[in-house]
Simulated scan of single mutants.
Amino acid sequence: MSKERVLITGAAGFLGSHLCDRFMKEGYYVIGMDNLITGSMDNIAHLMGQEDFEFHHHDVTKYVHISGDLKYILHFASPASPIDYLKIPIQTLKVGAHGTHNLLGLAKDKKARILVASTSEVYGDPLVHPQTEEYYGNVNPIGPRGVYDEAKRFMESITMAYHTYHKLETRIIRIFNTYGPRMRLNDGRVLPAFIGQALRGEDLTVFGDGSQTRSFCYVDDLVEGIYRLLLSDYAYPVNIGNPDEITISEFAEEIIKLTGTAQKVIYKDLPKDDPKQRKPDTTKAQELLKWSPKVNRAEGLKITYDYFKSLDREKLFQTEHKDFEKYSKK
């Protein structure tokens, strides 16, 4: 008996590669797709050559063709870190619009269920705390972060349109800050930025006064939430994230303690439209999916830190992180 087949876009990225692992473990035949604009083949090198995995080097903003049946499509193709979507804003908008449209069309043709990866950024700089799925957000559509925020908001809209008009089986996940092995060390996100600075012996840079908050979810917990949502019968957006909130200043001190380094914390101007608070209301996930995060921050950070320490020095000293200030002020 042939295995059920799943297409995962963004397969060579941080989250996409972990999803490939999970679906392989669950006994699916996995088709990974990525244009490698931000993904890395290193993330899926361990899957290449396995009989239940195939990889397509393809840009989903172009027509997507897959031969044979598909049971599920998981659309995770998108730049997700600030340094990426600030450097390639048009590609970010196109993958949210054209890419999502192409994959919804493929799902309709294959009669497949599709899950799209939205984000807490649809809430913008929120005026409601914690953020519930019913909150419409506070987004600046023409600000520097608008290219990512609005790409994801459009993704949700067109997905719901296909659900209501074409009766397509759709699922929407709103992902809050997630971390773990295979993150890029210098991609502009706060956790890898702090660990990278600590490993290089640099002072930790906090943007703003450090009172802004984030809530960090370990990747294994997120993947479990994605899997449960895909198999559920709920078509509307669901927050998946860890509601354990912490200020950025407190988090910087945690990283210094974790790494055993003696750096100090320095403060710089807050980038435009950077959210002041970020904490998911996960009531829906708890009630509908029986899901809640299991990995506490101390445990997850230790695993992630050990992963980053294992990287070679060339990756450790890449200067990608230095571009963040340049692009975030535009």
Rank of each mutant, 00 (worst) to 15 (best):
R174D: 11
T119K: 09
H129F: 12
G146K: 11
Y148K: 06
T159G: 01
P126V: 12
A107S: 09
T92L: 10
T119P: 06
E150A: 13
T92H: 01
A161R: 06
K152I: 13
D149T: 13
A97L: 14
S157W: 03
I114E: 02
H129K: 08
L103A: 14
M160C: 06
D109K: 03
N138G: 12
T132F: 03
P126L: 04
V139Y: 00
D149L: 00
P144M: 06
I90C: 00
G105F: 15
P141V: 09
L103P: 12
G105K: 14
G124L: 00
F154K: 01
G143D: 12
L168S: 09
E134V: 07
V116P: 01
V139C: 06
T159Y: 08
L104Y: 01
T159S: 07
G124E: 05
G105E: 14
R145C: 05
N138M: 00
Q91F: 06
I90V: 06
H98Y: 09
P141A: 14
L127P: 07
I175S: 13
N102Y: 15
Y135N: 03
T100N: 04
L168K: 01
F154G: 02
L104R: 13
A112H: 04
E150N: 14
N102M: 15
K108W: 11
T119C: 02
A161L: 10
L104K: 06
G96Y: 11
N138E: 11
